[in-house]
């Protein structure tokens, strides 16, 4: 009932809001993009580049708000509330907790500020709060696809043990991806695979994650595959080589395109990654917010990708990764 009321308020306020924002020329439009990560997250710099390009293309005033450190949800919420208080013309933000942001998003709707979620959405999707649309990856599905893609290169007749690296326990984006991978592995077990899996807190630092994965593999020699919830797992390549692990002996897969991950793919230690095209997650919300304000068009969901990138694809994506757009 509460959600229904919120949605009605959202729709009504949005219509009222449109009336108010129609008076602006495109040059006056102010959009804010918010995330719960720090400025040092390379992945989010690609989203920022997409945002910057869109803002230049559409001649709107944009600002991206990071938090002082990764995963500071309270600061992210505070930034969101401050932004709503500034009466901006549009907001794009991540929703990494199902309940934390509901009131703030409802307030944005009441004030007629169109709000689109990007990168990470409420796990209940559109039912979770009154946001207008989601632009990003279906995280659970993406995790499912990574596990599925890894098992393609493995032998069903042999015992397999998969390590699932949860980069930030408790944050929905990581839990969703690992949850999707776990589901596929459970389905594989039901399908007759002689397979076990285990989840560890793998951290979100290339060096620390690499160490934890290698230490785990050393203590659990039956490990045959690793699923990372982001790109940090690629840090394991160096210590796997130190351990004498040959390319292809342990299958690794995860997310995003960063130079170290592409390097490890070329060296044969990473089998696949999923590119969620972060540039689009920065560009498209600005485009949509612009059209909402200028023409009263509706926001719409965009799945920015679950494309598997394998070593044979590295050559074609590497130059775009270096440009900071993939």
């Amino acid at each position: 009932m509460k959600k229904t009321i919120l949605k009605i308020c959202s729709a009504a306020a949005f219509i009222v809001g449109l009336g108010a924002t129609n008076a602006f020329s495109a040059d006056d439009l102010k959009f804010t993009v918010l995330t719960q990560t720090g400025i040092d997250n390379t992945f989010w710099q690609t989203i920022k580049r997409g945002m910057d390009d869109a803002c230049e293309d559409y001649q709107v005033d944009c600002q991206m708000l990071f938090t002082s450190e990764n995963g500071n949800l309270q600061m992210h919420l505070q930034n969101l509330e401050t932004t709503i208080g500034q009466d901006v013309d549009g907001i794009a933000t991540v929703i990494v907790d199902d309940n934390l942001y509901d009131e703030a998003i409802a307030r944005a709707a009441e004030k007629g500020i169109p709000l689109i979620t990007i990168n990470v959405d409420d796990t209940e999707g559109a039912d979770g709060n009154s946001r207008l649309a989601f632009i990003g990856q279906d995280l659970f599905q993406a995790g499912y696809e990574v596990a599925k893609g890894l098992l393609v290169g493995m032998d069903k007749s042999q015992p397999q043990h998969v390590l699932l690296g949860l980069a930030r326990p408790g944050e929905s984006w990581a839990e969703d991806r690992i949850g999707g991978a776990r589901l596929y592995l459970d389905e594989a077990i039901a399908d007759g695979w002689n397979l076990t899996h285990e989840t560890i807190d793998s951290a979100n630092d290339i060096s620390v994650t690499g160490q934890r994965i290698c230490q785990y593999i050393l203590g659990n020699r039956k490990t045959t595959a690793v699923v990372g919830s982001a790109f940090w797992f690629a840090g394991a390549g160096e210590c796997l080589r130190d351990m004498g692990v040959k390319p292809g002996e342990i299958h690794m897969g995860g997310f995003d395109l960063v130079p170290i991950l592409l390097d490890e793919m070329k060296l044969g230690y990473v089998d696949l990654t999923i590119d969620q095209q972060p540039y689009l997650q920065g560009y498209l919300p600005i485009q949509q917010l612009y059209f909402i304000n200028k023409f009263g068009l509706s926001a719409f969901d965009v799945n920015t990708g679950k494309a598997l990138i394998r070593p044979e694809d590295v050559g074609s994506v590497e130059k775009y990764s270096a440009m900071g757009v993939r």
């Binding site: 390379t42 990764n70 060096s207 690499g210 160096e238 170290i260 390097d263």
Partner: peptide, 16 residues
Amino acid sequence: IQVFRIKAIVPSMGTG
């Protein structure tokens, strides 16, 4: 030393 060891640099290294 860490950059030399892992042969990559990311702006978030050393956090914490």
